[in-house]
Every structure is written in structure tokens, then in C-alpha cells.
């Protein structure tokens, strides 16, 4: 550890973490896979000329051809186009739900952990309340009560029902930081609450926050697919991986057209696996002690 290279570059803890992360092969593979999937989603219009929502009723449940690489679905829509555009939805839902949850979770967790007392009690009892109801039941109830489910609403529902776990982590980290002498030191020089939170607490809590946010994104993608699979997620004809797999509920398609549901299934599997590898890599990078097996 003390092998100082005489480089100009200062060894900031963050930079050290990034360096450890890049050395992790599994995490790097995760980044590459996720990058490829993201590129496919972004450049979907260049990779296929089909409209994922346009159904050609003369071509229902066709086997793969040169024109339709993965065949067509029950409404005559091109499966390959749906796979690419579905990646967009899955990634957008996963990412924005994660971001939304991150904002709620970090803000509430920071308030609870920093101020303690009544603020803490109020926030944590609310979190307990939400955690006491099984996630699926809660999400399904809210969705069932809504008339129309758009992506924005869907993301909001996921964020509102999943923030407690992140809030607990942030709160716990803040509580332990509060007892540290450097926080007292910051107060002793006259730093304001805001400065202490942003300059002293968050940089020290960033590791667990990033790691959990990453892992959370993976579970958000699974949640989206699961809800779409049972028809309570993003409604048709918007393509999502979950929507595509729900076609496999039909035994005929399940048996005769594996090309219709295996690719989106693999898509979910690979994306979630990649993100989880990245998350694990980040954890090891930010907390090298957890790596000693």
C-alpha cells in the first residue's frame, strides 16, 4: 500500500477505487456487455427498419426469415425490432427508477441520519410501513387503481415502493459517520450543516450508495419485466422484454417459437447479470476489505 509511485497524479481514494474496479475482470466484462446492450438500444432504428408497434396481420407468428430475423409475434409485429426497442424501455425504466429511488432514498436517509430524533422517527416509521407490505401487492394495488399506466407513472410507482431499503442504508452510514471525529472537526471550524452533509458525509457514504444503486437497477429491470409479464406493467403495444416473454404464456408459442421468448429472456438475464457484476466490482473497489476471501 505504501509503494508510492512518484507520479504527479494524487492518489485520491476515489481514483484508487476506480483503479481497483478496472482490475476486476468480471466487472469489466459486465461493463462491456451492458455497453453493447445499451448501444443496441440506442441505435435500434439503424439496426432494423421495422416498427416495433406495427403489426402486419398477414404475418402472424411467422418463423424467422431474412426479413424478420426472429420471426413475428401474435399480432404480426417484428420480434427483432421489439427486442431492440424493448431494451430501450427496460433500460430506461431500470435507470430512471433507480435514479428516482436514489434521490428519495438519499435525501430521506440523509435527513434521518443527520438530524436524528423526531425527523428520523417519522421517516423510518414511514419506511417500516412500506416495508411491511409485500412489494408486489403494494405495486399491483397502486397500478390497479390507476387508469392508465405510462412509463413515468410506472417508474414513480417503483420508486415510491422501493426507497425504504436505500434510505435505511444511507441512514445507517450517516449514523456511523456522525460519531466520527472529523465531523466534529468540521463543526469545530464552523462548517454549516449543508457543507457537512455534502462535503463530509456524502463523499464518505458514496461507496455504499453507488453499490446499492447499481444493484437496485438490476432488480428494477426484473420488477419491470415481472410486472409486464403478468400484464400489470407497461401496456401493449409498447415493446418491453417483459411484454415479449408474456407471449410465452401461450403453450403453443412456448413450444413452437422459442425464438420469440428466448432472446428477451436472455436479454434480461444478461443485463441483470452484467449490472450485478458491476455492482459487486464496485463494492470490492470501494471497500477493499470485503474482498479478502
Amino acid at each position: 500500500m505504501k509503494s508510492h509511485k512518484k507520479s504527479k497524479q494524487a492518489q485520491s481514494p476515489f481514483r484508487l477505487a476506480i483503479r481497483r474496479f478496472i482490475k476486476n475482470k468480471l466487472a469489466l466484462a459486465g461493463i462491456i456487455v451492458l455497453a453493447l446492450i445499451t448501444l443496441g438500444a440506442i441505435f435500434a432504428p439503424l439496426l432494423t427498419e421495422h416498427d416495433p408497434t406495427y403489426g402486419d396481420l398477414l404475418k402472424i407468428e411467422k418463423a424467422p426469415t431474412d426479413e424478420h430475423l426472429l420471426g413475428t409475434d401474435g399480432s404480426g409485429r417484428d420480434n427483432f425490432a421489439r427486442l431492440l426497442y424493448g431494451a430501450r424501455i427496460s433500460l430506461i425504466v431500470g435507470f430512471s427508477a433507480m435514479l428516482f429511488t436514489l434521490v428519495i432514498g438519499v435525501v430521506l436517509g440523509a435527513l434521518a441520519g443527520y438530524y436524528g430524533g423526531k425527523v428520523d422517527n417519522l421517516i423510518m416509521r414511514l419506511a417500516d410501513l412500506i416495508l411491511a407490505i409485500p412489494f408486489l401487492v403494494l405495486a399491483l394495488t397502486i397500478i390497479a387503481l390507476l387508469e392508465k399506466v405510462t412509463i413515468t407513472i410506472f417508474v414513480t410507482v417503483i420508486a415510491v415502493t422501493t426507497w425504504p431499503s436505500l434510505t435505511r442504508i444511507v441512514r445507517g452510514t450517516f449514523l456511523s459517520l456522525r460519531e466520527q471525529e472529523f465531523v466534529l472537526g468540521a463543526r469545530a471550524i464552523g462548517a454549516s450543516d449543508l457543507r457537512i452533509i455534502f462535503k463530509h458525509f456524502i463523499p464518505n457514504a458514496i461507496g455504499p450508495i453507488i453499490v446499492n444503486a447499481t444493484l437496485m437497477m438490476a432488480s428494477m429491470i426484473i420488477i419491470e419485466s415481472a410486472l409486464s409479464f403478468i400484464g400489470m406493467g407497461i401496456p401493449q403495444p409498447t415493446p418491453t422484454w417483459g411484454n415479449m416473454i408474456s407471449e410465452a404464456q401461450n403453450i403453443r408459442i412456448l413450444r413452437n417459437h422459442p425464438e420469440a421468448w428466448i432472446p428477451p429472456g436472455l436479454g434480461i438475464l444478461l443485463t441483470v447479470l452484467a449490472i450485478n457484476f458491476i455492482g459487486d466490482g464496485l463494492r470490492d473497489a470501494f471497500d477493499p476489505k470485503s474482498n479478502r476471501r
Binding site: F182, A188, P203
Partner: peptide
């Protein structure tokens, strides 16, 4: 606090490790 300052006991815990 401009006029009163403190030097703490623990040289490891009293400096924020994320700051240069």
C-alpha cells in the same frame, strides 16, 4: 469559531479521508 480552534486526539479519525 474563527477565534477558537481544536486539535483532536485521533490523527486517523479526525481528518476526512476523502479530502486532499
Amino acid at each position: 469559531r474563527r477565534d477558537m480552534q481544536m486539535v483532536f486526539q485521533d490523527p486517523f479519525g479526525s481528518l476526512n479521508s476523502k479530502m486532499s
